[in-house]
Structure formats: structure tokens, C-alpha cells
Computed example of a mutant assay.
Amino acid sequence: MGERAIAAQARDLTKDFDGKRAVDGVSLTVPEGRITGILGPNGAGKTTTIRMMLGIIDPSSGTRSLLGHDQPLQVAREVGYLPEERGLYPAMPAMEAIAFMGALRGLPIAEGRRRAIALLDERGHGDWAKRPIRTLSKGMAQTVQLLGTIVHRPRLIVLDEPFSGLDALNQEKLEQLIRDQAAAGVTVIFSTHVIAHAERLCERVAIIAEGRVAFEGAVDDARGRLRPIVRLRTRVADGAWRSALPAKARQVAGEWRFELPETGPEPLLKAMIDGGAGIETLSIERPGLHDAFIAIAGEAAAREMGHAQDPEEAA
């Protein structure tokens, strides 16, 4: 498969606010038809970077292109954008809200209403069509705004912290909507400070910390920076076989954990079998994106994101 065309690109973007640098030389590339996540704690510069790439604000320096145009606003009608600060007219029926958002991107209002009804029906929400926004729950209203973001069938969808405030069920529905759009060939960019969403959805990620890109590339490449982790439980607590464990091996909840040695598992297994360790369980696990994030961005950035634990992990 050949290289994909570029949907969005930033080169050395900077942005200063009142003498303070919020974005400091950000460069990133978003291939067409893929899901790209922008990861980082609140205040890292994610939203400012997105707004510069979309042409909502101008950079202090650097260049950007969007769908092949150096002036992003020229292709605004081909973009669906859900900002972090969201809001709908409370008295407007859901169908009209979706159609109105489409009209802002050039979609005729009658066609917008037709598509709005179809989008709601597809998701089993046809009964929402005539309900005023103020009568919907927060999750329902956010679903309406998301449908308004895609109703004009954009080539590129940009979602800024789209999972914020949603319960686990609505997060799952949003993840499926993102997958469906990507499967249809739409490029998706979303920012988040919950790493689990990016790990489940993204092919590529950009990790931003303190206004700079610490990593950009495939999720597998980020995880590949760390060696696999061995988890080992034995029947025998001690013996000569212990000398075969790496120096940094540590015991956690009754099992040994350590990085897989460069020599692979075979010499370790032989030493343990010969030494009568009595292997109960042994697994070799690839590090997750969370571990890679810590290695790339540092413990401090990870701690700043720690409060945003994935609901499934917290359960």
C-alpha cells in the first residue's frame, strides 16, 4: 500500500498569549482516512494547536495546511469541528439543531433536516427529533451536537476533548461513531487527556507536553520504545534460580515483574526449570500506551492526566 495523502499538517507552529508561549514549535502530520489522537494534559497546548490548524486563530509563527490549502478557512465547509466548549440553543428541537449546524457549513436547511432525522433514526433516537435541547440529558445533547458535526458529511472531523463529561455507555457510542466515520474514509482528529481512548481508537498519536510535540507516529511505534514486561509467579519462593532474574525485577502482589531480557525468555525458563522454581504462571505483555506516554512525556505529565482515568479502568 502506498503512502496516504496528507489531510492536515503543521510545521513549527508557535503561539504566544500576553508574552507567554502556549505552543512552542509544534509539527505534526495527519494522513487522510485515519484516526489520529492528540494526547496531553490540560494546558499542554492541544486546543490551541487545533485552532491554529483549523484557521480559527493565526499562529505567531510557523505554517499549516488543511486538505491541501494553506488558508484553512477556504475549506471550512469540508470540516466538521466539535470544540471543547460546547453549546446548543436550549429551545431548539434536536432535528433543527443538527440541521442548523449543517447550514453553517453550507448544507441547505431542508436537506439538513432530512439527514438529521436519518442520523437520529440510525442510532435509535428518532423520538428525539422534535424534543427541545433543554429536555435532553447532557449525554443526549452532546450526541445531538456530534451529529450536527457530521451532518454535512465532512472529509475531516476534528473533535476537541469529545469524551469529556460522558458516561461509559455514551463514550462507547462515541467511539463507535468515530470508527464508523473512519471506515467510510473520513479523516478523524481528536484530542484527549484519557489515554485509553487513544489506545482503543488511534492508528497514530501526537503526544504534546508543555506546548511541544514529544512524539508523533504510530501507536505501535510509541509502545515499541519499551521492552515487553514479564509477569511470573512461582511455587517456590527462593532458590538458585533467583540469580537468573534481571537485577531490576521486583515483586508485586506475589508475582515477579521485569522487562524481558534482550536474550529472550529461553535462558530464563531453562534456569527456572533446572532450579526447580515451579512456574505457576508466566506471561509476556507488551507495554500499553500509558507506559509509553510516561516514558516519552515523563511522570509529571502522566500525573497531570491521572485524574482523567478511563471509567472502565476505574470500575
Rank of each mutant, 00 (worst) to 15 (best):
Y81S: 01
G80K: 07
A198N: 04
V151D: 11
I195S: 01
Q181D: 01
C202I: 08
Y89P: 11
I38T: 05
A247W: 01
P154C: 08
V230G: 11
V144Y: 00
A253T: 08
A300I: 07
L67K: 06
L147Y: 01
W256R: 10
R303D: 15
M272Q: 02
R231T: 15
R153T: 04
K46P: 02
T192P: 02
A206S: 12
Q181K: 14
T14P: 01
R231Q: 13
V158C: 11
I229T: 15
G264P: 02
D127S: 15
E259G: 09
R257S: 09
M1L: 13
R235C: 05
L67D: 03
M95H: 07
V194R: 14
E32T: 15
L66I: 02
F163I: 08
G43L: 10
A116C: 08
G25D: 08
I157H: 07
G55K: 07
R4S: 10
D12G: 10
V205G: 10
L174G: 02
A302L: 07
A76V: 02
E111Q: 14
R233A: 15
K138F: 05
A198V: 02
I38A: 08
R223V: 10
I284K: 13
E262T: 13
G264K: 08
S137C: 07
E3L: 12
V144T: 04
N42H: 01
G185K: 11
A183S: 14
R4H: 05
P59S: 06
P162V: 03
G298W: 01
A314Q: 14
Q71F: 06
E172Q: 12
M305K: 09
R155A: 13
E3S: 12
P31T: 13
L146R: 09
Y89V: 09
